[in-house]
């Protein structure tokens, strides 16, 4: 919140420039989504028009082919014909279990890290940072052979466990920084009153930690939902989640001229994220800054 005196002496030109910049950025940020959402209700020859890009707006071909300016053909093809709904179910299962497990073991670990003064606490955090820096795909190449040998490859549960583990370093860092903001006196006094460390954690700390836990849960969700490297390599075809399924569409349907299936699937996969940002904007912002403000 810059003080009024600073705003006042801004020149008109500068203000227009800065407002114009914001408008341009908004266009760049939001327009692709709006455009794709709109185009997903058209036929391919309109959305990818050789003649004139305005066809995508007016929908000339769509009217010619289907009789109406909007068509659900893309969605029908993706959800019913290509069975995208199965991937939606799989994604829901994976995300639910990944978020729950990550938070359970992450809060325990993050709490412990924030309450220890020993040197190993620092080293564990540094190790987590190094693990966080490793591209997930490098780990995936370590999983494949053992998973094939032990018959673990392809199932949803294996992927869930792997995603939980890959998310742990990030979850630990975030929860650690949230826990550090909660005064240590709180659990000390609970312990004086006769609580064990776990009881203090369960009954005193967790109730005040909810905002931090929810924020971390959101990021855990995003990591699981957005993952491509792990889900593409570790899931059998019938267990595919949305993102690898969409990647699969590209290979098979582009040749058949059914790109619109992929467009519809992409829009379907974006809508939950859109809703998420709508409801949890504040938490996402606080989560992004949680790690940073500490320095």
């Amino acid at each position: 919140m810059s003080s009024p005196s600073i705003i006042e002496n801004k020149s008109v030109a500068l203000r227009i420039f800065s407002a114009g910049f914001v408008v341009v950025w908004l266009l760049i940020a939001a327009f692709p989504f709006i455009w794709t959402l709109w185009g997903s209700f058209k036929v391919e020859l309109d959305f990818f028009s050789k003649e004139n890009w305005t066809n995508a707006i007016t929908g000339i071909r769509t009217i010619k082919e289907t009789g109406a300016a909007y068509t659900m053909n893309g969605y029908e093809g993706a959800w019913v014909q290509e069975e995208f709904w199965k991937s939606v179910v799989n994604t829901t299962i994976v995300c639910f279990f990944v978020v729950c497990t990550s938070l359970t073991i992450g809060t325990l670990g993050g709490y412990a890290l924030s309450r220890t003064n020993f040197r190993y606490g620092f080293w564990l955090l540094i190790t987590a940072l190094i693990f966080r820096a490793m591209p997930p795909i490098t780990l995936v190449s370590g999983y494949l052979l053992p998973f094939f040998e032990w018959g673990l490859w392809g199932s949803l549960s294996t992927t869930i466990v792997v995603l939980v583990a890959i998310n742990q370093p990030f979850t630990l860092w975030m929860l650690h920084s949230f826990f550090q903001k909660i005064p240590k006196e709180l659990d000390e006094s609970a312990k004086v009153d006769g609580c064990t460390q776990f009881q203090a954690f369960r009954h005193v700390i967790i109730p005040v930690m909810w905002p931090g836990v929810i924020t971390t849960g959101l990021f855990s969700f995003l990591l699981a939902y957005n993952d491509f490297a792990v889900t593409a390599m570790l899931l059998a075809k019938e267990n595919q989640t949305m993102v690898p399924k969409i990647a699969g569409f590209l290979g098979t349907t582009q040749t058949e001229g059914n790109v619109m299936f992929a467009v519809a699937a992409v829009v379907s996969a974006t809508i939950p994220l859109f809703i998420l940002v709508m409801f949890f904007q504040r938490q996402i912002v606080s989560g992004l800054t949680a790690g940073a403000v500490k320095g």
Binding site: A29, A30, P32, F33, L222, Y225, N226, F228, V243, I246, A247, V266, A269, T270, L273, F274, L276, V277, Q281, I284, V285
Partner: peptide, 10 residues
């Protein structure tokens, strides 16, 4: 926030 939260592949 949209470009940031959207699935990279999408």
């Amino acid at each position: 926030l949209l470009p940031f939260v959207v699935t990279p592949l999408v």
